[in-house]
Design a protein around this nucleic acid. Structure first.
Lengths: 225, 225
DNA sequence: ATCATTATATTAACACCGTTCAGATAACCC
DNA sequence: GGGTTATCTGAACGGTGTTAATATAATGAT
């Protein structure tokens, strides 16, 4: 026979050179600047070579996406741990906000664009990378979940904290996203205080409503559509 | 002299043929399918002709954007008017939700993508179209504003209803956006009930907190960033 | 050492994209 | 009809993601 495959670590190293080149371009010049040809130039290979390591550009973005969730996770975990879950959630919200300002490219990729995510890769060659992406993304949500569990009370149905966590995430993202989309650029609302007071109000509500949450009976009047 | 310009209505008619071709492509096949060449084919002209009527593709999207806000406005106004502002806001939220499902391409264009908006066109030839876009978009927000004003009390500082309106919009958009981005596709949270109970809870809070709103003193503890 | 084999890399192309510009076409006034 | 000019278009430019054919290079067997 002839020429066995390179050992896995060598393949990984070559793949990593492409990934790092992509990352540098992405960090410095943003989403649109990441083209196969520029990546190739920076990685010191030909454009076609990239397709030996990534099935297509989307698969490459899947790795970038994972990096984004990893950065966010590192930021969230880097905060000094506060025992009070409410205070912790406030911290998370503040960190999330800061992340959106410091890493706007990542933010859009992670939360705004329709970049292929885990489910889109089920059964494909990139499934493993997609699984990693999902896992890292979930780690962030789990931080919220933990805090809301602590904030809850004994016997609280387990779907309640999940609902609260997702709502908080939605609230934070919604305000950031609308701000970033430029929709209310003309309204000159003070974005900063809007964000923080909205989060604060929501959290206050989540804690004050402890005993009466769910007495509303599941959103009456909304079935009218 | 020779060959005067066509009357304005004729120019407008030609421009409109391009616009309608774009609209049809956009409605049927979405953002990515709208290419200058496809528009030209459908409008029965050459790609270059389009540039006689629109300075560039973004200017064309500005018109599509306006159409989206117009559709939304029509949907919101088509609802039977309810005297209770709270009930009306619920209706708006439901309609907003339905809009995101029925017009997903518009939704992304209006609220998610970084499409050039009014401010980006200040001083350019497309400023007039940009101004129309802004005006229509604001009409939608004003519906929310009106309801929150009614919901308030005499002597309420005027920035409070604005804050509430934008927060509600942020909340609605955030949940929809995260859902659409596919982030929590794997969490199998019931998206429907999540959306409506979040909105309901927020509105309940807005009405219950009438007398104590703002006693929180403007989001303490958030300056830590 | 050479050869056959095959993993890896590259070259060159394909079919697109948005945009521009020189030139064709066509409509009007004189 | 001729001159003028508004309007339209074909062809091109430089870009994109992707792929098929080809070249390079490394190894095991002879």
């Amino acid at each position: 026979m002839a020429r066995p495959r390179r050992p896995a670590w060598q393949v990984e190293r070559a793949k990593n050179r492409i990934f790092r080149a992509t990352l540098e371009l992405f960090n410095k010049h943003g989403y649109d600047a990441v083209t196969i040809r520029r990546i190739a130039r920076r990685a010191g290979c030909s454009p076609a070579t990239i397709y030996n390591y990534y099935s297509d550009k989307d698969a490459l973005y899947l790795d970038i996406l994972t990096e984004g969730f990893t950065i966010l996770n590192r930021l969230l975990l880097a905060r000094p741990h506060t025992a009070d879950p409410l205070q912790r959630l406030r911290g998370y919200a503040a960190e999330f906000y800061r992340f959106s300002l410091e890493y706007p490219y990542y933010y859009d990729l992670m939360f705004s664009f329709h970049v292929p995510k885990y489910l889109d890769y089920a059964g494909t060659a990139a499934e493993k990378a997609a699984f990693a992406e999902k896992a890292v993304a979930l780690k962030n949500i789990e931080l919220l979940l933990d805090a809301f569990y602590e904030l809850g009370w004994d016997g609280e149905p387990p779907e309640i904290p999940a609902e609260k966590a997702l709502t908080l995430l939605g609230l934070c993202h919604g305000i950031i996203s609308l701000h970033r989309s430029g929709i209310w650029a003309e309204l000159d609302a003070d974005f900063d205080t809007l964000y923080f007071s909205a989060v604060d109000n929501y959290l206050q509500r989540a804690v004050r409503g402890k005993k009466q949450v769910r007495t509303a009976g599941g959103a009456p009047g909304f079935t009218d559509g």
